[in-house]
Design a protein around this nucleic acid. Structure first.
Lengths: 337, 337
DNA sequence: TTTATTTACGTAAACGTTTGCAGCAAATCG
DNA sequence: CGATTTGCTGCAAACGTTTACGTAAATAAA
């Protein structure tokens, strides 16, 4: 029942704590013979070094934080998967925090993390975040940060995203080529650059094909899904000429399906639908949903790798690089000509 | 650029470190006047206590670990959501580890966690885990553990599950009432009690309705989905009399959909399908999938709450209670009469 | 007044680890 | 043979907090 730590091991071996510590860290300063003895006893006693003592002394936590809006979303779940993989390989631990897209909560989380609990931070900003002082203050605390997906333009650091503009362009073009004349764009209204890029891709694709961009066809959704269903219903009823819908986020595509079911609009005959989505079951929907799918796992993994490189080099502030991983358009029944 | 810690605050305020510490922890041993001064400066300097020093000294990490097979699965994602919520409310942090259903990885993770990095552990065991020595050894390290969903019968501690037996019974009965004569049961073959309960529910429901249980109709799936598709195809071809499928896990239901599409079997006309699933889009599948849906969020939240209560009371070993939260059967098109 | 009690603060020892420095043999070199 | 190097080990001081204990002053009780 006595605690097993360096002290107890040292006593049992009749050597100093320092030697035991060095032996376990495989220092060249200790003879092979003693290393063997130390390792043998450590194994026998199931010694595990105290992470906090080590962290305190070395000022290194071997932990990264992940701050995301939500986890019950296949994109973020996959991203975490990638992050965990990269972290594990590098011997790092992963702390997870959910903001639920709440600015106050995001600030509170980031604030707490400045206590040195993490060596670095991965973040996808909350949609409501407009002030970035809390993020900038991480720099004073020497905590590097890497954004992924929902990046923050105001903060200069490494960012990993997908090609949102091109994807928005492609999705729109895909609908045009499928024969759509009046294409609506559904997005979540906020100040996230990611939505702006997709919107711009949509607008430019329309222009490139000689279509006038109609502001009336751009629907700004809200946080509440039930409310979005109402908004979409109202739009489709007000504008019966709409024959194509490009949803900027998955749940708006799903809501569109619900509204179409409700209104008796057939997909794809009456309205074609495409949306950004990482839904596994997209191919099994009725009808199978055409998607632009982000490489979520790779985005998480790449972001983590970049962060970990910076952490290992003790680079608190990263060069303002931007890594772009390409999304893939899967054409399925919902946009069939 | 000088570090802001208790020492620097104390110097600036001309008082001892002890007083500053006590003031910040709102101790009754310090006057209101000095508390004010301390708090003011701490706020001005953006002081954040060093988590590791505190943890080392108090032997409390304010952190819980979550060890699960995967995160890219709506059930676990929702569970994490509930866990994070409970943890946040109690002021705890959440470390996450993925086993990918790999026994060796699970052992390695648990081993490392004995270093005191976490105050308690939430776990859903890997499907390949047969030996539980690594889990039992947590007891020596005074780390309480709570199982959720995939519990471990060999270890006496608190467990949070859903009513797997009753749900299996209900699902089977649902198919019987829908008119199915030959009901297959698909499960993942492993030693998890959870699958055994569902299977037993299936068997008992058949018996209760005077149907002989046919071992040939029980398909033991494997880890690889592609392989499962082959197995299911083989089963449905060998036994064309099968008119109902009860899938123990989501991906087997999905694979069944794929096979039925491929073989031209109509759902629900030729074969009715029901499965355990937390798929959000179940209602949008073609056809909408009848599901038994687990209260994933609540399971996670409840498990975390139980664990946190134990942690706060420094109860390293929890009473062997079992909390059962009920699943809900959603009857949809895939089992329509 | 003296003697308890309370209030408010400081001193210093932990917590377990890492690491600069020193010591002290034995080995090598000039 | 003395001087220097090399190889191994121990001493002790950190890292930033928390907290048992001590103490001085102020207040209350006698």
């Amino acid at each position: 029942m006595t605690p097993v730590n360096l002290k107890s091991l040292a006593e049992e071996l009749n050597m100093s704590i320092a030697t035991v510590s060095r032996a376990l860290r495989d220092s060249h300063e200790v003879s092979e013979a003693t290393k063997q003895r130390v390792r043998a006893l450590a194994a026998a006693r199931h010694y595990e070094p105290n992470a906090y003592a080590s962290s305190l002394r070395r000022n290194i936590s071997k932990t990264i934080g992940v701050v995301i809006p939500k986890v019950a979303n296949h994109f973020f779940a996959l991203a975490i998967n990638g992050i965990e993989e990269a972290a594990r390989q590098a011997g790092y631990h992963v702390l997870i925090y959910l903001t639920h897209d709440d600015y106050a909560r995001e600030v509170s989380i980031v604030q707490h993390l400045k206590g040195g609990r993490v060596d670095g931070l991965l973040m996808s900003v909350a949609s409501g975040t407009e002030d970035f002082a809390h993020i900038k203050s991480l720099r004073e605390a020497n905590i590097p940060i890497v954004f992924f997906d929902r990046v923050c333009a105001e903060v200069a650091t490494a960012k990993v995203t997908t090609n949102d503009y091109e994807s928005g362009y492609q999705a729109t073009e895909h609908l045009i080529q499928a024969g759509c004349k009046h294409i609506a764009h559904l997005l979540i209204s906020n100040n996230l650059s990611i939505g702006q890029f997709r919107l711009q891709g949509y607008l430019d694709a329309l222009t490139a094909h000689g279509r006038p961009a109609d502001p009336d066809l751009i629907l700004h959704g809200v946080m509440d899904n039930q409310q979005n269903v109402g908004l979409i219903r109202e739009l489709l009823q007000r504008r019966p000429d709409i024959d194509g819908v490009f949803a900027s986020v998955e749940r708006l595509a799903i809501s569109t399906y619900h509204v179409c079911n409700e209104l008796g609009r057939r997909i794809p005959e009456d309205i074609k639908v495409i949306g950004f989505s990482n839904l596994e079951a997209a191919a099994l929907l009725d009808p199978p949903l055409s998607t632009i799918t982000q490489p979520a796992y790779d985005i998480g993994r790449e972001a983590a790798k970049i962060l970990l490189r910076a952490v290992e080099k003790k680079k608190a502030v990263l060069p303002s690089q931007s890594v772009v991983l390409e999304s893939t358009l899967f054409a399925r029944q919902s946009t069939a000509g």
